[in-house]
Simulated assay, not measured.
Amino acid sequence: MKKWLISFILCGLTLVACSNDKLVGEEDVLVSYYELVDMCNELFRYHAPMDEHYINEAYQHVADVQNLLEGKVTEHGLEQIIESIFDKEEEQLVYKGQYKRYIEESYYYGNDYNHRDEYYPTVRESILNPGLQIISSEELQVESKDENVLVTGEQVPVIFYDEEDRLNKMQFQRFGYPAVDYITISFSFVHKNGQYLMDDYHIEIVEG
């Protein structure tokens, strides 16, 4: 269902761009944004224990993440993503504290715990937040700044489910999702060899 939703958003960008007379290249930047945040969700899957740590079996080394995000990020952007999610134990990438705790206490490996409702709070203020994929393009601004192109959104509403839909509400609440969250983002892209590469990003949740 997630792949269908991402495809729907990406296909819809063309219509949105035409109807709003968006600047040349704006559609391409937004496509790059949506593709990037979708790909990054791969980095919090395939969990496996390693000594006292937890790893992603599919992306155990920097080169693995580099291959995943090739053509989507600059070297600095790659480093920023990796350092926000992983620590390095020699050449091995291991999950940072907050992600380790969630895996440890969740249904994956916990014996006495069932902390699945900590999933969304764990990834909420990170590039792993699934809400980044379903932000409406109408809520995002694209602007040029020096040699970069910025994709920004201020207190953007992200709707996960309808409070009146009891089934969806129950399923999302099991993983700690609110009905609506508000996210402030800034993604900086550079245009290189015909591609928009993410060079820097900031994600912020302002409570209240």
Rank of each mutant, 00 (worst) to 15 (best):
G110K: 11
Y120W: 14
E79F: 09
Q98V: 11
H47E: 08
V24W: 15
E42M: 01
I82Q: 10
R174E: 08
I6L: 09
Y177T: 10
P178F: 00
S136H: 10
I159Q: 11
K100P: 02
E79A: 07
E207C: 02
I127D: 13
H115F: 14
K72R: 07
E143V: 09
M170W: 12
I159R: 12
G12R: 10
D146M: 07
C40S: 11
F86V: 03
K72D: 02
T184L: 15
Y119A: 07
H191S: 14
D21G: 04
Q133D: 14
Q60K: 15
V142P: 01
V123E: 00
Q155D: 08
G153T: 02
V94A: 00
Q155E: 11
D200S: 06
A63Y: 01
N129Y: 11
I203A: 04
E26V: 02
E104D: 13
Y34P: 10
L15K: 04
W4G: 00
Y161M: 10
Q66W: 05
H191T: 06
N20R: 11
F189W: 14
R174M: 08
G110D: 14
A58N: 09
R116V: 15
I127E: 00
R101S: 09
C40Q: 11
S136W: 11
V151F: 05
G208W: 03
I134L: 11
E204K: 07
V180R: 14
V62D: 15
S136V: 07
I81T: 07
V31Q: 13
L68K: 09
V16H: 04
V180W: 13
Q98Y: 04
A58Q: 08
E27I: 02
K192T: 13
F189A: 07
S186C: 14
N193E: 15
V190G: 03
C11S: 12
V149W: 10
L36W: 01
T184W: 15
D146E: 13
H53F: 15
Y54H: 11
P121R: 00
R101I: 10
E207G: 10
E163W: 06
L132D: 03
D21H: 11
V65D: 12
L5E: 13
L69A: 05
S126A: 13
M198V: 05
E204W: 08
W4L: 09
G77Y: 00
I135T: 15
A179K: 08
I81N: 04
I159P: 03
V31N: 07
I134F: 00
Q92A: 12
H53I: 09
E204Q: 04
Y54P: 04
Y109H: 08
H47T: 02
Y107D: 13
S136M: 09
E125L: 03
M39P: 03
Q133F: 01
T74R: 06
